[in-house]
Design a protein around this nucleic acid. Sequence first.
DNA 1: GGTAGACATCGACACTCGTCGATGCCTTCG
DNA 2: CGAAGGCATCGACGAGTGTCGATGTCTACC
Lengths: 122, 122
Amino acid sequence: MSREPEPAVSDPSLSCCTPLTGTAMSADQAERIVPLLKALADPVRLRLVSLIAAGKGGEACVCDLNDAFDLTQATISHHLKVLHTAGLLDREKRGVWVYYAVRPDALRSVATLFDTAALTPA
Amino acid sequence: MSREPEPAVSDPSLSCCTPLTGTAMSADQAERIVPLLKALADPVRLRLVSLIAAGKGGEACVCDLNDAFDLTQATISHHLKVLHTAGLLDREKRGVWVYYAVRPDALRSVATLFDTAALTPA
DNA sequence: GGTAGACATCGACACTCGTCGATGCCTTCG
DNA sequence: CGAAGGCATCGACGAGTGTCGATGTCTACC
């Protein structure tokens, strides 16, 4: 049987506004969202984002983040880089210290994905 | 050895109601949510969930899912098992065919995580 | 200038993951 | 009963991932 015609990806610029339910997502849409999910699909990175988001102004210093885990500074730095590369965190250097801040738009992209899904009645 | 191959489905209700922002999440909370995110952090699996959720009654037959990908039947079966083990999909056999259905509560757990996050003002 | 501290990068290791072909199990039908 | 088809499982392979110690880079301060 032939595949359904692609329902015209409306917004190729961003991976936003992709309902998980409703209509099936295209392969392109999946490829765009997956890097965000991959970055968050790690207990350390998920806690890092949570810690940063819970910090003042939605940001946190690396020096404080290191103390929150029983991991090497190199490992924390690696995870922060992964989150930054995925577009979930912003990086800003202030003197000796480096501050990471959450990117609300990135989180919103993921939220939109599951937002529609959650509305599905049981 | 155990005869019933029914995998130990993680209980999504336990990982519910975990805001990403607000207060930092505990290590336990992260460990509970991460399996769901890991299961969804794959383009094939994300599309599988999307396809199933978009199907009639939020379910789909494996025979139809196989045709939607350029992958071996064994690979699709593997991905479905991962999603089922994570608690994201229900499995039901009807005669020769097997139907998978989304578990709205599992999706809601993930949605709740990012729901609060998306509400964070800029 | 020299030194100390904060963070990033490098190289290496064990481990996990995605994919495949082959095979097994189960249901249906002739 | 035997054959056929749908789906799961097995074993194996390459690729990717998380973690570490060691090292590099930059800033601030004495």
